[in-house]
Design a protein around this nucleic acid. Structure first.
Length: 582
RNA sequence: UGAGACAUGGUGUAAUGGUAGCACAUCUGAUUUUGGAUCAGACAGCUCAGGUUCGAAUCCCGAUGGCUCAACCA
């Protein structure tokens, strides 16, 4: 047997604090040794990279510890939600490679939540408040000052019971009544100052129709849904830390009403919070993303510049690359700002393994091989992916007139320029070594722009030929044959935001400018040139590629085939550039 | 001026009272039919001040710093 340690197999990956907690719980036999999680998006927008971090954790630990993760739509606010988003959410989770147990909806629990609320009123733990939103807010106090009790706080139970029924009748105007939990108006925790459990909306819900007019709030809903479903670990982001005592309290009340007297650590979900994802040069908030869509700054939720899962998919980011990045940044309680360069590095690492190599000339200038016959064609075999032989090969054509990148030629080049110029030699990828003449190596138009470059091929320098290994100073450059290539549309993307931390910049700008909101607060930081459309010449073989296929335009960057691309009109998105160490 | 959570190289993250390690970024060099990839190397860190301990990034106590909380949103 081979006894040398296999570092990859024996290396123990350190567990994050949530995995450690779960392993501890398992060891102690909490919740009967079961692990169950849930991913609870509100269907009011598209999932973004921040959600991917939560998804990777919720689904990841469930799988890791033999449990289930359900997908639960947090649909308690029919004003903002839409079935369009439900479909998009499901598609994005599947694309990332995760499987849910059941698809559940908070609205499935509306009756149960209502019945529980009635019971809580009976037990003196909730009351109907008839004050306006302004009055309630004014009574709430501030973090440093205690609040005051509502005049309705001690109204008779029967009265609250009757009014609560009325709240759902459709006859109460929104804003006239709410159901509040009776807790502690002087608590240091603002969420304990008699939080609102139900509000009147008087609008139909896309799932329950017109059955309900009063709808439960998040805080009153989430813990009980977790409890009723058998969730053991309710994972969410750090801004919910202050909600946790309330989460626990409502779960306790639900257990009490249900007569559930199992020990404290059994049969109860527990909320644990981790840091939300922040990325440089990216803004993640559904509200702001929605503004970008509505203002036409981007072309929809799946615009390749959007930090949404669907935007990344369209841009050519692979699920494996996204997940690898999420794995690298980890889960902690520190409010970190992650660098885009780490994300791009994870993406490149993955794309390098799967992208097929092709030639595309983005800023073309004509190169004439003066010693190659005018109507001849040579056909070469190009390796699809040097990192993976199984990806095979494809054919490319060579002829007398080629397109090369304009920047690969310089008439008077500096010393370190190892590409084409008078007297210089380069290798044409997959083809000959060529050399420009010392004199008259290019033709210019009246304005002095180079329109044609001339070079001679050096015989027997193709792969496998006698002089193939000839040492030259020049680099290898890519090309396409003028006669055989096709024109394509290339969409290059630059960052959407000019500043490193748009979240803070937008917020500060708003504060300093009369609290301007929406697009006006964002515009100063938006890059006006985030989308650059170019014409390019690409090899004909690309007509065989399908939308979303991963490609590498050699020496330029990773690209993919856009959703709009057809064989008659090829469209490519720049995913990310190659690492560039000039 | 209240409460809560947090603080380790430029960035992110390990360490669970016992040699501060990894990745990205940056910089060298080798190699290369992609200025990619690959390989080798370098640079660089425990917020501060006390205490407990044979021993502290880790435990205790202050201080400092930014973060979160006052939606009939989630």
């Amino acid at each position: 047997m081979n006894t040398t340690p296999n570092t990859e197999a024996t290396e123990k990956k350190s567990l994050n604090f949530i995995e450690q907690m779960i392993e501890n719980d398992l060891k102690e036999g909490k919740n009967g040794g079961k692990v169950q999680t849930r991913f609870p998006p509100e269907p009011n927008g598209y999932l973004h990279i921040g959600h991917a971090k939560a998804i990777a954790l919720d689904f990841g630990v469930a799988e890791q510890y033999g449990g289930v993760c359900n997908l639960r739509m947090d649909d308690t606010n029919p004003q903002k939600e839409d079935t369009e988003y439900v479909e998009a959410i499901k598609r994005d989770i599947e694309w990332l490679g995760f499987k849910w147990g059941d698809i559940l909806y908070a609205s499935d629990y509306f009756q149960q939540l209502w019945d529980l609320a009635v019971e809580l009123i009976k037990r003196g733990k909730a009351y109907v408040d008839e004050q306006s939103a302004e009055e309630i807010a004014a009574q709430k106090g501030t973090p440093t000052q205690p609040g005051q009790n509502s005049p309705y706080r001690d109204r008779p139970v029967e009265e609250s019971l009757r009014l609560f029924e009325e709240m759902n009748s459709g006859n109460v105007e929104p804003g006239k009544m709410v159901l509040r939990a009776k807790i502690d108006m002087a608590s240091d925790n603002m969420h304990f100052r008699d939080p609102i459990m139900y509000r009147v909306l008087n609008m139909p819900h896309w799932r329950t129709g017109s059955k309900w007019n009063a709808y439960p709030m998040y805080d009153y809903t989430h813990g009980q849904c977790d409890y009723w479903e058998g969730v053991t670990h309710s994972l969410c982001t750090l801004e919910f830390v202050a909600h946790r005592p309330l989460y626990d309290l409502f779960v306790d009340w639900a257990k009490e009403v249900a007569g559930d007297d199992k020990p404290l650590d059994d049969n109860r979900p527990r909320q644990t919070e981790f840091n939300k994802l922040n990325l440089t040069h990216i803004l993640l908030s559904k509200r702001n993303l929605l503004v970008l869509v509505q203002e036409g700054i981007v072309n929809g939720w799946d615009d390749p510049r959007m930090p949404t899962i669907s935007g990344f998919r369209r841009r050519g980011y692979s699920p494996e690359g996204i997940l690898a990045f999420i794995n690298k940044i980890g889960y902690t309680k520190f409010d970190a700002l992650n660098q885009m360069s780490l994300f791009e590095s994870a993406l490149r690492e993955d794309l390098n393994k799967r992208a097929l190599r092709v030639s595309a000339v983005v800023d073309p200038v004509k190169l004439v091989i003066t010693n190659f016959p005018e109507d001849a064609t040579e056909v070469y075999t190009a390796i699809n992916n040097p990192e993976n032989e199984a990806d095979g090969t494809h054919e490319i054509e060579f002829s007398r007139e080629l397109w090369i990148e304009r920047e690969d030629f310089m008439e008077d080049a500096p010393k370190k320029f190892f590409r084409l110029g008078p007297g210089k030699q380069v290798r044409l990828k997959n083809s000959y070594i060529i050399q420009c003449p010392e004199e008259n190596c290019c033709k210019k138009d009246a304005d002095g722009n180079i329109v044609e470059i001339y070079a001679e091929l050096i015989p027997e320098t193709k792969t496998g030929e006698a002089n193939a290994n000839m040492k030259i100073k020049g680099k290898t450059i890519h090309w396409v044959s003028c006669r055989h290539c096709i024109e394509a549309e290339v969409r290059n993307y630059d960052r959407l935001w000019l500043v490193e931390n748009p979240r803070d910049e937008v917020a500060n700008y708003s504060k300093e400018h009369d609290n301007v909101r929406g697009i006006e607060a964002m515009r100063p930081f938006l890059n006006p040139d985030s989308l650059q459309v170019r014409k390019a010449y690409v090899e004909k073989w690309l007509t065989t590629r399908k939308p979303l296929d991963y490609l590498q335009f050699q020496r330029i960057g990773y690209y993919n085939v856009d959703l709009d691309s057809t064989p008659d009109h090829l469209v490519f998105n720049k995913t990310v550039g190659l690492r560039d160490t000039k």
